[in-house]
Design a protein around this nucleic acid. Structure first.
Lengths: 246, 246
DNA sequence: ATCTGAATGAGTACAACGTACACATCGTTG
DNA sequence: CAACGATGTGTACGTTGTACTCATTCAGAT
């Protein structure tokens, strides 16, 4: 084991075994080929194209043209990778112009966040802790918009949290529904309802779900997720305005 | 390969290899030891005690005193198991008494749901699709409470979704924070802040997060998650009441 | 010009996972 | 009592995250 270390450079091996051996080896590998930027970009690309579950360290290494363990020199593990991915896509969230009031700012970020999550559905199935730089920046902009209303610090943070909790909860539900539909190959709401009709009919025939049944029969905006999201968002903003008197 | 199949039953092995072999084997196994109820209970117990990640088919089998593959006779796979677990714990959600108005009903279920999720934090890290029976029942009770206000079907469902999106988003964030703290061995908010102080100080010294900094200095209810949750909840309910005129 | 130590990547290895498949055993029903 | 369907056992395979060791390259000091 340690004996190998004893090898002196000058004398070395008498038969020169390395030449042909090296010729066989693919390439001497250019260095510094990896970087956090490149790793994040590749991981996001994989997740976008093949889903969150496809982001494995091996798949990532393949995409980067690198050995399975190489990325571990740059990230501590899978968790670091998620944080990196979240931070990268979150960079594209931008505040409306400076003159915007608190409500416009929060509303704009809410709509953008939903769009972002729908564009990168893997964001819904990730443990997003992360005080990543871009997420901190977004939070600061929202808090600053609220701070302009002369709120105490606790109310400011509570309002911020309320909106963002709603946005995440709502969008996550939407993503889960979409993935469920995709997994079964149902393209739209109509098709989904058709496929689920037998089970639904059975459930409704029990008479235990009259309110649900009325929704099934009377609702006109069953597939209008934009409307549904904005309805809830405006409720939340109304409620904050009323409760804080702003 | 296929040759083994040729074995006829009658002649079999001449040396009677099974007697001592059987003596070694634990027991002939009493039948029908498994049931969906028992499986669900065991899985919930594991998840409660050791976290969602500890719920593996093998760990489950061990707890049930059964071979690793046994549970597959009852559930199609991991997804079925999650649904079973969610349904089981959701059974304990109960409506307030019948005279309660829509707001009381929604508020009560919101508080209960948060308690339930905090008591079973694995609920936050699970793909909860699931039209499970108990979840359907809870939804119906909330919808019925709203339906009593003469709302159109779309508004009824939108209000329902708004509240529940907030509840899930908010509680999930709380769970993530808790798990983050536990992972680092920080017991409370104060201890967490102390441990994070160096990074925080650095971030604040950049001057990029003034609103955040003010929160850190001035806030008085930083660790009062109950207050924070109820503040948001009441905002949401206020907003719904205003927007729907109920 | 050469040497050296720190970065970085390659390679091998392992335990644990979900689950497919073939087999053994039980309770039930004709 | 014989045969069958339901249920539990056992073995096996491919994939995962990641620990560990070794090889190569680059930068800077000599």
């Amino acid at each position: 084991m340690a004996a190998r270390k004893q090898n002196q450079s000058k004398v070395a091996e008498p038969v020169e075994p390395s030449l042909w051996e090296r010729m066989e080896r693919p390439a001497p590998a250019p260095r510094a080929s990896l970087s956090l930027e490149r790793i994040a970009a590749a991981a996001v690309e994989i997740a976008d194209e093949e889903g969150a579950a496809a982001v494995t360290m091996r798949r990532l290494a393949t995409k980067l043209g690198v050995a399975p363990m190489a990325a571990y020199r740059h990230v501590a593990g899978k968790d670091d990778l998620w944080a990196l991915m979240i931070d990268r896509v979150s960079r594209q969230l931008a505040a409306p112009d400076e003159s915007a009031g608190w409500r416009e700012v929060l509303r704009s970020f809410a709509l953008q966040t939903r769009e972002l999550m729908l564009a990168h559905p893997w964001m819904g199935s990730i443990p997003l802790i992360s005080l990543t730089p871009s997420r901190m920046a977004v939070a600061e902009q929202q808090l600053a918009a609220l701070a302009a209303c002369d709120l105490d610090a606790d109310s400011m943070m509570a309002a911020f949290r309320t909106v963002n909790s709603y946005v995440h909860g709502s969008t996550q539900a939407e993503i889960i529904l979409r993935e469920y539909q995709e997994r079964h190959g149902w393209s739209g709401g109509e098709e989904t309802r058709k496929a689920l009709a037998p089970q639904m009919n059975y459930l409704m025939s029990t008479g235990r779900y009259p309110a649900y049944e009325r929704y099934g029969l009377e609702a006109a905006r069953k597939d209008d997720h934009d409307w549904s999201f904005e309805f809830g968002l405006d409720c939340v903003l109304d409620g904050i305005a009323k409760r804080l008197g702003i």
